[in-house]
Computed example of a mutant assay.
Amino acid sequence: MKLIESGQVLLTLEDGVGHLVLNRPEASNGMDVPFLRALHDAIMVAHGRADLAVLVITGEGRNFCAGGDVKTFASKGEDLPDYLREATTWLGSCASALLNLQAPVIAAVHGFAAGGGGFGLVCASDIVIAAESAKFMSGATRVAMAPDAGSTVTLAQIVGVRKALEIFLTNPTLSATDALEIGLITRVVPDESLHDAAFALAKELAAGAHRAQGATKRLVWTGLGGRVEAQLPEESRTVSELSGTADAREGLAAVIERRAPRFTGR
């Protein structure tokens, strides 16, 4: 059943298994405000389906999601803080909606899962299956900004405070094997098996006790004491504030120009 059949985010539902597709391959599924609005709309449709037992998220094209759309960000000039305040608010709402979705969420990751968009969605998913060639990176401080999508809470809970700080501050590119070793992801499979593995698990969950699964998911995430939702406004404010600095402008320019940034602390 096609629930959303065109646009930047697609959604289908069959035998209790929902499939949400990030569908902006020409930009590596990079997130701008229209994309985030479409993503939020799709997740809200999923929330409204009593027949949804599990949701699988995949990305179209070469990457799962390369993070924010840096070219759009760079084009905003002095308006960037206001734009990012809106973008991060939408992204936070998307992450919160996934965490609060009763159905388990499986992220099937290929290519890059980077930035608040890709890395943040990974942290907001319940189970993460990655292709052997998948790569993971936070990347926010690399462009003089701060992490978002609730990851300043979720990542620390998933991998521990020390490892989370190392990832956020040094921005390593983690291989699928690296990510598995630190507990960031659930399983690694051969590239050609990613789709089948994700949907085999989804069908297994869909055949299970939905109410028990939903209640268990809720207990685990609410065990964080509501800190994810409480942190979202502060993440948004911080990203917006930092985006107005000279270092942030330099960081975005360096990514677009494929060179090392030259930060001045301003």
Score class of each variant (00 low, 15 high):
residue 122 V to H: 10
residue 45 V to W: 05
residue 140 A to E: 12
residue 178 D to F: 02
residue 198 A to S: 04
residue 43 I to E: 06
residue 263 F to C: 06
residue 19 H to W: 12
residue 220 V to F: 12
residue 64 F to H: 12
residue 241 E to C: 00
residue 155 L to M: 09
residue 138 S to C: 14
residue 172 P to Q: 04
residue 62 R to A: 15
residue 84 L to D: 04
residue 250 E to F: 10
residue 265 G to N: 11
residue 38 A to H: 06
residue 102 Q to A: 14
residue 147 P to Y: 05
residue 53 A to K: 14
residue 139 G to R: 07
residue 213 Q to S: 10
residue 53 A to P: 00
residue 113 A to M: 06
residue 143 V to C: 02
residue 190 P to E: 00
residue 247 D to Y: 11
residue 198 A to Y: 03
residue 220 V to T: 09
residue 45 V to C: 08
residue 159 V to A: 13
residue 261 P to A: 11
residue 123 C to T: 12
residue 194 L to W: 04
residue 34 P to G: 08
residue 100 N to K: 14
residue 200 A to P: 02
residue 46 A to M: 02
residue 258 R to E: 15
residue 161 V to D: 12
residue 154 T to Q: 08
residue 90 W to L: 15
residue 151 S to D: 01
residue 103 A to P: 10
residue 109 V to C: 14
residue 172 P to I: 02
residue 213 Q to E: 11
residue 1 M to K: 10
residue 85 R to Q: 03
residue 241 E to A: 13
residue 194 L to I: 02
residue 142 R to L: 13
residue 150 G to C: 07
residue 125 S to C: 15
residue 232 L to G: 03
residue 33 V to A: 14
residue 78 E to S: 01
residue 116 G to V: 04
residue 76 K to C: 01
residue 186 T to A: 10
residue 156 A to R: 15
residue 85 R to M: 02
residue 222 T to F: 14
residue 225 G to D: 04
residue 64 F to E: 05
residue 56 V to G: 07
residue 23 N to K: 09
residue 124 A to W: 02
residue 62 R to C: 06
residue 238 T to L: 13
residue 27 A to L: 14
residue 23 N to D: 14
